[in-house]
Amino acid sequence: MSLPLDNRRSSSSARSLQKGQATRAAILDAALALASNMGLEGLSIGALAEVTGMSKSGVFAHFGSREELQISVIREYHAKFEEEVFFPAIREERGLPRLMALFENWIKRVSVEIDSGCIYISGAVEFDDRPGPVRDALADMVRSWQSALKRAIELAVEVGDLQPDTDAAQLLFEVHGLILALHHDARFLRSPGAVERARAGFARTVSHYAAAGAFERAKLPAAAPARR
């Protein structure tokens, strides 16, 4: 017994939609790999068509413009960043355990990107003085991540792991600076031990703001004393 015509059309439409979504996801994966190695400015409909083996019109049909392609890649990168860095960390206890997990997951992400590149960092260099939708999308994603990290710092203050007068914005700035230094030394200079230095810097920075006994309560290693 054959399906009614309306049901056959509905089934066909559903398959077409699934196929279109799968194709778009495959294009985005290829675009993300290209952008990680060549930067967002290295992305083009033509380059992506060549990599994926599709026609330019086929790629264009999914994104419509190079600008929309770049913005879609930024959003895809942010989604993967959240999956690897943010979501696993928020399962940790509020306070230093969660803050430490956020930083540790971030370090692991940067370590993976040493041979490719961080779109947040490379994109900031490419678009720091170029206003427009791509820059806005990139800045929004970075601000979103910084807000999450700042909130983790504020929660650490609320639970008593950090001193009540901790300047959350300042600590955020210092922690972010450690990641930028790690990316620079590990990717550009290829300096050995950069990851360990970043971890040591984080422990020392946080210990400056930590309440008495916080490291012990959170079962975290204490910061090594500064060398004289």
Score class of each variant (00 low, 15 high):
residue 81 F to S: 10
residue 96 L to M: 03
residue 133 P to L: 06
residue 135 R to H: 14
residue 40 L to I: 07
residue 183 H to Y: 12
residue 77 Y to R: 05
residue 49 A to T: 03
residue 128 D to N: 08
residue 126 E to R: 02
residue 122 S to Y: 01
residue 218 A to G: 03
residue 13 S to E: 10
residue 4 P to R: 06
residue 25 A to T: 10
residue 211 A to M: 04
residue 124 A to M: 07
residue 36 S to H: 03
residue 58 G to Y: 06
residue 118 C to M: 13
residue 225 P to D: 04
residue 53 G to Y: 12
residue 120 Y to S: 07
residue 74 I to N: 04
residue 194 A to S: 10
residue 221 P to E: 15
residue 7 N to M: 08
residue 64 G to N: 01
residue 12 S to I: 09
residue 66 R to M: 00
residue 63 F to T: 11
residue 98 R to A: 12
residue 209 Y to W: 10
residue 202 F to P: 00
residue 39 G to T: 03
residue 24 R to C: 01
residue 6 D to M: 13
residue 211 A to T: 12
residue 73 V to P: 00
residue 185 D to I: 01
residue 42 G to I: 03
residue 29 D to A: 15
residue 90 I to C: 08
residue 129 D to V: 11
residue 129 D to I: 09
residue 90 I to P: 02
residue 200 A to S: 10
residue 93 E to H: 02
residue 161 D to R: 06
residue 141 M to F: 00
residue 24 R to N: 10
residue 61 A to T: 14
residue 223 A to S: 14
residue 145 W to K: 04
residue 89 A to N: 05
residue 200 A to C: 07
residue 218 A to H: 00
residue 66 R to W: 05
residue 93 E to F: 06
residue 204 R to H: 09
residue 114 I to G: 06
residue 161 D to E: 03
residue 153 I to V: 01
residue 85 V to I: 12
residue 146 Q to W: 06
residue 163 Q to C: 06
residue 184 H to P: 00
residue 130 R to F: 12
residue 203 A to Q: 13
residue 83 E to D: 15
residue 186 A to F: 02
residue 75 R to N: 10
residue 170 Q to K: 09
residue 38 M to V: 04
residue 129 D to W: 01
residue 206 V to R: 02
residue 14 A to G: 08
residue 213 G to L: 11
residue 13 S to W: 05
residue 181 A to G: 04
residue 31 A to W: 01
residue 68 E to G: 13
residue 176 H to C: 07
residue 17 L to Q: 15
residue 218 A to I: 00
residue 166 T to P: 01
residue 206 V to N: 03
residue 5 L to D: 13
residue 54 M to N: 03
residue 27 I to W: 08
residue 167 D to F: 05
residue 179 I to N: 11
residue 155 L to C: 04
residue 1 M to A: 08
residue 57 S to M: 15
residue 109 R to E: 14
residue 93 E to M: 13
residue 26 A to H: 10
residue 196 E to R: 05
residue 47 A to Q: 06
residue 204 R to V: 00
residue 76 E to W: 09
residue 153 I to H: 01
residue 86 F to Y: 13
residue 25 A to V: 05
residue 12 S to K: 05
residue 9 R to A: 05
residue 80 K to D: 10
residue 76 E to N: 14
residue 121 I to V: 07
residue 22 A to L: 15
residue 35 A to F: 02
residue 17 L to M: 12
residue 14 A to K: 13
residue 45 I to Y: 08
residue 156 A to I: 00
residue 70 Q to W: 01
residue 65 S to L: 09
residue 93 E to S: 11
residue 142 V to K: 06
residue 191 S to H: 12
residue 100 M to N: 13
residue 20 G to L: 08
residue 190 R to Q: 08
residue 189 L to F: 06
residue 31 A to I: 00
residue 209 Y to T: 03
residue 147 S to T: 07
residue 175 V to K: 06
residue 124 A to E: 12
residue 47 A to H: 05
residue 96 L to T: 03
residue 41 E to F: 00
residue 4 P to Y: 09
residue 75 R to G: 11
residue 174 E to Y: 03
residue 182 L to Y: 15
residue 6 D to T: 08
